[in-house]
Computed example of a mutant assay.
Amino acid sequence: MADRLPRYRPPARWFHWTVAVVVLLMIPAGLIMTREGLARPVQDALYLFHKNMGVLLVPVILARIAYRLTHKPPPLPASIPGWQRGAARLSHALLYILLVVMPISGFIRVRAGGFPIELLDRLGVGPWLAKSERVADIAQGIHAVGAVTLIAVLAIHVAAAAQHALIRRDGVWGRMWPVRGG
Rank of each mutant, 00 (worst) to 15 (best):
P178A: 08
V42H: 01
Q43P: 12
V158Y: 03
R7Y: 08
W173S: 12
V19Y: 10
M26D: 13
L24Q: 03
F115W: 14
E133Y: 05
P73V: 02
V158T: 05
Y47T: 12
P10F: 10
M102F: 10
I80L: 01
S132Y: 12
R180Q: 12
P77T: 02
V172P: 06
A147C: 04
W14P: 03
W177K: 02
G141K: 04
P28A: 03
A2G: 15
A130C: 02
V110R: 12
P75G: 05
L76Q: 01
R13M: 05
A159H: 00
A155M: 05
H157C: 04
L150Q: 01
A152N: 02
R109L: 05
K51Q: 15
R64G: 15
I104K: 05
A39H: 06
V110T: 15
V22H: 09
L62Q: 11
G86A: 10
P81Y: 00
I32P: 07
L123G: 06
L57I: 10
L25D: 06
R109E: 13
L5Y: 09
P116L: 11
W83V: 00
Q163V: 02
L90I: 09
R89L: 02
H71T: 11
H71L: 01
G126R: 02
R7S: 11
I108H: 06
W177P: 03
V145H: 01
L129G: 08
P73Q: 02
Q163Y: 12
A130G: 14
A165G: 08
D121W: 09
G124L: 04
P116G: 13
D44M: 11
L57Q: 07
P6L: 12
I27E: 01
A161E: 06
A66I: 13
A29Y: 09
L95C: 03
S105Q: 06
P81K: 01
E36D: 14
I104N: 07
A159S: 09
W17M: 13
L119Q: 10
Y8V: 04
A12C: 05
G30D: 10
R13Q: 12
R134Q: 14
I151N: 02
S91M: 00
G146Q: 08
M176W: 06
S105A: 14
P178M: 08
V42F: 04
S91I: 00
L90E: 00
G82E: 01
P6F: 06
S105Y: 08
G113E: 12
F115N: 14
V21R: 09
V55N: 14
F107L: 14
P116F: 13
L94F: 10
A136C: 11
P6V: 05
V58I: 15
I104L: 15
I97G: 11
P11T: 07
Y96N: 06
R122D: 11
A160N: 00
E133V: 02
L31D: 01
R89F: 01
V125W: 10
